[in-house]
Lab assay of single mutants.
Amino acid sequence: TLFEALYDYEARTEDDLSFHKGEKFQILNSSEGDWWEVRSLTTGETGYIPSPYLAPV
């Protein structure tokens, strides 16, 4: 399942991933609570992002 960003987000740590509203992601790991490890389909980068900022496509 692909997810889309509902809002912009600016990374706060080196493990976070900055992204823009509308960017699409592949979920790599969603078992860590509200922070999911994802791969951006736009940039190819991986990192953690807050799951409340995402919605299924």
Score class of each variant (00 low, 15 high):
Asp8Arg: 04
Pro56Met: 09
Leu28Asp: 00
Thr43Lys: 03
Leu28Cys: 05
Phe3Thr: 02
Thr43Gln: 01
Arg39Pro: 00
Ile49Arg: 00
Phe25Ala: 00
Ser30Phe: 13
Pro50His: 14
Val57Trp: 08
Leu17Val: 07
Thr43Trp: 02
Ile27Gln: 03
Glu10Arg: 11
Asp8Ala: 07
Thr1Lys: 12
Leu28Val: 08
Leu41Arg: 01
Tyr9Asp: 01
Tyr7Val: 10
Ala55Gln: 12
Leu28His: 02
Leu2Pro: 04
Leu28Tyr: 03
Val38Gly: 06
Glu32Asn: 15
Asn29Glu: 06
Tyr53Phe: 11
Gly44Leu: 07
His20Phe: 13
Trp36Thr: 03
Ile27Asn: 01
Ser51Ile: 07
Glu14Tyr: 10
Trp35Asn: 07
Tyr7Lys: 09
Leu2Ile: 15
Ser40Asp: 02
Glu37Gln: 13
Tyr48Ile: 09
Thr43Asn: 06
Thr13Leu: 10
Thr43Gly: 02
Asn29Asp: 11
Val57Ala: 08
Arg39Met: 12
Gly44Asn: 08
Thr13Glu: 09
Ile27His: 02
Pro52Glu: 15
Leu2Met: 09
Asp15Lys: 15
Val57Cys: 08
Ser40Pro: 00
Pro52Thr: 15
Glu4Ala: 08
Tyr9Lys: 03
Pro52Trp: 15
Glu37Met: 14
Tyr48Gly: 02
Val38Trp: 01
Ser30Gly: 09
Glu10Lys: 12
Ser40Met: 06
Arg39Gly: 01
Leu54Glu: 02
His20Arg: 14
Leu41Gly: 01
Ala5Glu: 00
Arg39Gln: 08
Val57Ile: 13
Gln26Ser: 08
Leu41Phe: 07
Ser30Pro: 07
Ile27Lys: 08
Glu23Phe: 04
Thr1Ala: 12
Thr42Ser: 13
Ser18Ala: 07
Glu45His: 12
Tyr7Ser: 09
Glu32Phe: 13
Trp35Thr: 08
Phe25Asp: 00
Leu28Thr: 04
Asp34Leu: 15
Thr46Ser: 09
Trp36Ser: 01
Thr42Lys: 13
Ser51Pro: 09
Ser31Val: 10
Thr1Val: 13
Ala11Pro: 05
Leu54Gly: 03
Lys21Phe: 05
Ser31Tyr: 09
Leu54Cys: 05
His20Asp: 05
Glu32His: 13
Pro52Ser: 15
Lys24Ser: 05
Gln26Gly: 02
Ser31Pro: 08
Thr13Met: 11
Trp36Glu: 01
Glu10Met: 13
Leu2His: 06
Val57Arg: 01
Glu4Tyr: 15
Pro56Phe: 07
Arg39Cys: 06
Gly33Lys: 12
Arg12Glu: 12
Thr13Trp: 14
Thr1Gln: 14
Phe25Asn: 00
Ser18Val: 04
Leu54Pro: 02
Lys24Val: 14
Glu23His: 08
Pro50Glu: 07
Glu10Trp: 09
Ala55Cys: 07
Gln26Cys: 11
Thr13Asp: 10
Glu10Phe: 11
Gly22Ala: 03
Glu23Asp: 15
Pro50Ala: 09
Tyr53His: 06
Val38His: 00
Glu10Cys: 13
Trp35Glu: 05
Phe3Gly: 03
Pro56Tyr: 06
Lys21Ser: 05
Thr42Pro: 01
Asp16Asn: 11
Thr42Ala: 12
Arg39Leu: 11
Gly47Arg: 03
Ala11Gln: 06
Glu10His: 11
Thr1Cys: 14
Arg12Thr: 13
Leu2Gly: 01
Asp34Phe: 15
Ser31Ala: 11
Phe25Gly: 00
Ala11Met: 04
Arg12Met: 12
Glu37Thr: 08
Thr42Arg: 13
Gly44Tyr: 06
Ser31Leu: 10
Trp36Asp: 00
Gln26Lys: 08
Leu2Asp: 04
Leu41Ile: 10
Val57Asp: 06
Pro52Lys: 15
Ser40Val: 06
Tyr48Ser: 05
Ser18Ile: 04
Thr13Val: 08
Pro50Val: 03
Tyr7Pro: 00
Glu32Gly: 14
Ala11Thr: 05
Pro52His: 15
Ser31Lys: 11
Asp34Val: 12
Asp8Val: 02
Thr1Pro: 12
Asp16Gly: 15
Phe19Gln: 01
Glu4Lys: 07
Tyr48Gln: 06
Asp8Thr: 08
Thr1Asn: 11
Tyr53Cys: 12
Asn29Trp: 07
Asp15Asn: 14
Ala11Ile: 02
Lys21His: 05
Ser30Arg: 12
Gly22His: 06
Ser51Gly: 10
Glu4Val: 15
Tyr9Ser: 03
Glu4Asn: 03
Ile27Tyr: 08
Leu6Gly: 03
Glu10Asn: 10
Ser31Trp: 09
Glu37Ala: 08
Pro50Cys: 14
Trp36Met: 05
Leu17Arg: 03
Leu2Thr: 09
Tyr9Gln: 03
Ala5Arg: 00
Glu37Lys: 13
Asp15Tyr: 15
Asp16Ser: 15
Gly33Met: 10
Phe19Tyr: 06
Glu32Asp: 14
Asp16Pro: 02
Phe25Tyr: 01
Thr42Phe: 10
Ile27Trp: 06
Gly47Lys: 03
Gly33Ala: 13
Pro52Cys: 15
Ser30Gln: 12
Glu14Trp: 09
Phe19Leu: 04
Ile27Leu: 13
Tyr9Cys: 06
Glu23Leu: 01
Phe3Ile: 03
Glu37Leu: 15
Pro56Lys: 06
Ser30Lys: 13
Thr46Tyr: 07
Ser40Thr: 03
Arg39Ile: 10
Leu28Gln: 02
Pro50Tyr: 15
Glu4Ser: 06
Asp15Thr: 14
Thr42Cys: 11
Pro56Thr: 06
Glu32Val: 11
Glu45Gly: 08
Arg39Ala: 04
Tyr48Met: 12
Leu28Glu: 02
Glu4Thr: 08
Pro52Val: 15
Gln26Asp: 06
Tyr7Ala: 10
Ser18Met: 04
Asp8Glu: 07
Gly44Gln: 06
Leu54Thr: 04
Gly44Trp: 06
Glu45Leu: 14
Leu6Met: 09
Glu10Gln: 13
Leu17Thr: 04
Leu41Val: 09
Phe25Arg: 00
Leu17Asp: 00
Gly47Phe: 07
Ala11Val: 02
Phe19Asn: 00
Ala5Thr: 04
Leu2Trp: 09
Leu6Lys: 08
Gly22Lys: 03
Leu54Ser: 04
Gly47Asn: 01
Leu17Tyr: 06
Ala11Tyr: 04
Trp36Val: 07
Asp15Gly: 15
